[in-house]
């Protein structure tokens, strides 16, 4: 049982980071970022290239992943999402744009990195063994880094000036603008930050699960699940959703093992029931 909980916590920390990026972009721009999984994959491949092939330190690779994705996110926001949001009559148009962006990133990833499964050497070898829990050291490191990043992100959102501005934007865009918040600049920063989070998680996880060009879509779906559980556009909700999904997956894989591959079916069924009771998730605003 302790093993299951440890696995769940480790998974949850990863998932929460992914969901944080998605929910941040949604809160600021009202854009459902379909390309989130692809950003994650791209981050993974950047780390693979820098750490696995150029043999630079893992930390450098992670930073490279983050910076690359932040730049891509900023460019996407400035040249694609902003003009479309301004000119479109229906705000759903951004969804088409996001979906097209997902296809685009998929194509770029496929062209640049091919379709093979890629992995990197372990960052730390060895396994932590006690009488109840067995955890490889690299998983512990990745989990701890993820939790530290979540904490850093929350502190940033809570106490820094950009963080405060972004929270104001998420609450009420017009009011924030009237108070003198530079809406465009902080939308840009927010989008870049969200993309960066996706990239960094991709980089972190490449050291454990590896990465291949096909996992972008499934990752996006998982991110949507977490955001639905926790409530769209709420930082706390994303974190809660991530840990809940991680825990459910970990428990489900153990408990439902003899019934075959039904863990996600059960999770979906539970989600349907949950959403019919609380349509806007645990902490979401009604009609996000």
């Amino acid at each position: 049982m302790e093993q299951v909980i440890a696995n769940g916590l480790y998974l949850g920390a990863q998932y929460a980071l992914i969901a944080l990026g998605l929910t941040l972009i949604f809160a600021l721009m009202n854009v459902l970022n379909f390309a989130h999984g692809q950003m994650y994959v791209l981050g993974g491949f950047v780390t693979y290239s820098v750490y696995g092939q150029l043999k630079l330190p893992f930390v450098v690779a992670l930073i490279c992943s983050g910076v690359t994705l932040a730049v891509i996110g900023a460019l996407l926001e400035k040249f694609l999402f902003r003009p479309v949001i301004r000119r479109s009559k229906r705000e759903e148009s951004t969804m088409l744009l996001a979906a097209a962006t997902a296809f685009f990133l998929d194509a770029v990833i496929l062209l640049l990195f091919g379709e093979k499964q890629r992995g990197v050497p372990k960052i730390i070898s060895g396994v932590f063994i006690s009488d109840r829990v067995i955890l490889p050291y690299d998983r512990i490191v990745v989990g701890v880094v993820a939790i530290l990043m979540i904490a850093a992100f929350m502190l940033f959102m809570q106490y820094s000036k950009p963080g405060r501005a972004m929270r104001a934007l998420a609450q009420d865009r017009v009011a924030a603008q009237l108070m003198g918040v530079k809406v465009e600049r902080y939308s840009l920063i927010g989008f870049a930050l969200g993309a960066m989070l996706a990239g960094v998680v991709g980089g972190l996880l490449v050291s454990i699960t590896g990465v291949n060009s096909g996992i972008g879509g499934p990752i996006s779906i998982k991110a949507f699940l977490m955001v639905m559980i926790g409530g769209a556009g709420v930082v706390g909700g994303a974190i809660a959703g991530g840990f809940i999904l991680g825990m459910m997956e970990s428990v489900g894989l153990t408990v439902l093992r003899e019934y075959g591959d039904v863990t996600y079916l059960v999770i979906f069924a539970l989600l349907m029931i949950f959403l019919s009771i609380r349509p806007h998730g645990l902490m979401g605003k009604p009609w996000g």
Partner: peptide, 26 residues
């Protein structure tokens, strides 16, 4: 399926229906 999920709106409905496709496959 619609009776519960049609109470959702906007992105929530979009996300649930997206998940629905995955459910059908599974």
């Amino acid at each position: 399926i619609g009776l519960p999920i049609l109470r959702l709106r906007g992105v929530y409905f979009a996300m649930v229906t997206l998940v629905l496709t995955e459910v059908a496959r599974l």
